[in-house]
Design a protein around this nucleic acid. Sequence first.
RNA 1: GCCGGAGUGACGGAAUUGGCAGACGUGCAGCACUCAAAAUGCUGUGUCCUCAGUGGCGUGUGGGUUCGAGUCCCACCUCCGGCACCA
Length: 807
Amino acid sequence: MSYDHQAIESKWQDLWEKEKVFEVSEDDSKPKFYNVAMYPYPSGELHVGHIRNYTYIDLITRYKMMQGFNVLCPMGWDSFGLPAENAAIDQGLHPRESVPGQIERMKAHFRRLGVGFDWTRELASHDPAYYRWDQWIFLELYKRGLAYKAEAAVNWCPKDQTVLANEQVVGDDVCERCGTPVEKKMLSQWQFRITQYADRLLDSIDNLDHWPDRVRTMQRNWIGRSAGATFTIQVDGGGTFDVFTTRPDTSFGMTFCVLAPEHPLVEELIGGMENEAESRDYIAAAGRASEIERMAEGDKTGVFTGRYAINPVNDARVPIYIAEYVLMGYGTGAIMAVPGQDQRDWDFATKYGIEIIRTVQPEEGFGGEAYLGDGPTINSDFLNDLLQEEAKTKIIDWFVKQGIGEAAIQYRLRDWLISRQRYWGAPIPMVNCSNCGLVPVPENQLPVILPDVENYLPKGKSPLAMVDDFVNTECPECDGPAQRETDTMDTFMGSSWYFLRYTDAHNEDVIFDPEKAKYWMPLDQYIGGVEHAILHLLYARFITMFLYDIGLSPVEEPFERMFTQGMLVKDGAKMSKSKGNVVSPDHYYDAYGADALRLFELFVGPPKDDAVWNDAGAPGTKRFLDRFWKQSVDEHEFSDRVADDRDREILGVAHRTVRKVTDDIDRFHFNTTVPALMTLSNELQSYLGDEPLKEIFDEIIEKMLLMLSPMAPHLAHELWEMKGHDSMLAHEPWPTWDEDLAREETATMIVQVNGKVRDRIEVSADIEESEAKAVAMASEKIQGWLDDAEVKRVIVRPPKLVNIVIE
RNA sequence: GCCGGAGUGACGGAAUUGGCAGACGUGCAGCACUCAAAAUGCUGUGUCCUCAGUGGCGUGUGGGUUCGAGUCCCACCUCCGGCACCA
């Protein structure tokens, strides 16, 4: 026996839409709940791995609605940028053609799954009405010196033919989108000064109490704050350079200095020196090698410049080297090398025969090379005998007094490279004028519309550069001829503030009404993949903080509660189109229905963990729904006897189930809610064999329907209606439980002898300690085990356990 | 190398605080219904041992704390994720 899931599901999908069940506006009479799943790029397809995510978000929407919250759950499309453009290339289409159709197909998927979104707030990042505000934010950043164009060594993806932000280079230095190893290039690019927010972004992580620890840790590590000092070193024969160190206390141990190959002073230092040619070869090779090739070398390599530096603390004359292991992009691009306390410097010094001076006394029995631990300072004049922290303070004071240095903090975080040499993105709203230089496009000329370019394929330079009508324009300042910027913005720009736009999605005058944002923000729940732990989640925090600073966002931190769900695994790999192991839901909709699929998605495993997809899972949950359907609609024979312990017992099971399901949902343990409902259904089946009472049975079925409503909403709504209710189930209050009824009257007390279970006795749940002990000791089985051994101790934990310790 | 997370039946997993290990589902086996099959229902299903008990063993490995450990502590192994010449 099987209920007609196809008919029921489309019926209720129509009704929810017609009655605008999920369309909401600001309403001060109810507490608000703002619930968002990361907006997807419109691939056109949803596989069962994606559906897991939307099953969770919809469960929360419906659950919170039933709890009386004014719930906003909107949906939109990350339809600009590399993912959407690459998908169009794969299909041999123009993104302008492919994107709208794919959005429609995904909406059909969401409808078929029965997800309740407020579609009146739908937005798409390729819509000029949306991206004009990307451009507007760019200009606001520019006004405040937070957007700038500068020549820098950048990451280049040779397949996607564009530069990438540091955050988009993942794993073994490969492109986050296509997995191609990235190359280094020197290019002039637009960047956002996210590093200016490094401290705030870091400190504020401490307050994100409802974020997963691993995401918080990843962001902390990514920002990577180190405290130390910078100071200036004189070159013997003229010139100076600055170094950054976290160990200024070891300055007396500096036996050489190293400059990065790209360091600006290098040219001046090597000129005319004996080994100039050798140096130039080294620098050229370093420029060519990718990061991976550099690392693969293993050994540290370098070249002596022929010049010497003067250690300011003791006037020692030490050699200056050029070496790849010093990076131009971190600190000052130059270091004081202290081989005694730094293993990299030790390796280098050993290889090139440079002197090693220890300035920290290693522990007794230390057999290693560089000593990184704490200990009394040695060989260091006025720092001698001090421990690390005191020595640091004293030497920094000394630098300040000498006027050569100061305490300093460095971050691993780099500025956010925002330019992309690709077509499908928001044009950067800047103009180059030969008279006025870089000029921002005035706000009233926004949006700078992306021109329609037929041959949009990546060429290594922005395709917009070939569109003369677009490039050639008037300078907004002097009205002379000028050229537009032709790079487009990183798609992560659009995703950094869309959750603010949802609060006022169609405003044509301002980015959003701060009053509306104030009602809805921050997000009470945000759900997405852990792959965005650093990328999107860091950028979105930065842009929100910026919009807060200019008085627009009502909050500094956008995401009050963050949840990162696990991925689905099939054939030993994470389910993804590129791995070719995706499972389409279509077959499940047809054969078992959206409700059975949703229940299995919940059932499959802990939401935070990866889970293995099992094709036999949805048939299993469908069997449960069929049984429950039959249980609900069949005619049963009811008794007219007086209520007794049996009824009390089944009611107790039902109330405990409500308590458990509520608690499990609150803790995001969705995988245990379904078994709880299955168990209650099984108990109810056995109750039907025990002269059931109609009102008890009906009450429990009703509670089941209320609990199923957020999980298997179509079936639950249909049965709710069949039971004679006029109301829409989604608007009913979440069921409550009665602690008195939920309390178990009897308990199975286990009796152990020396920690091993030897008997189980049914006892009253409120049994006293002395009685529990007496009952346990009186058990025949226990007597047999005790024999005439001496009882040394009895542990009593009524009503669950008595443990008798003998011998 | 550093920082996280995880190891439980044939499989996915359950076990909020240390207190009946294996809920629930899948798979498998047997039975019922059927000419038969599917579907459905019922029963069984950690493992070992003279097929039987009031039995032994059992949550990656080895120790420890405790009356009692999947859960706490120490050491180790394996897998997964992140970072990785960041001075």
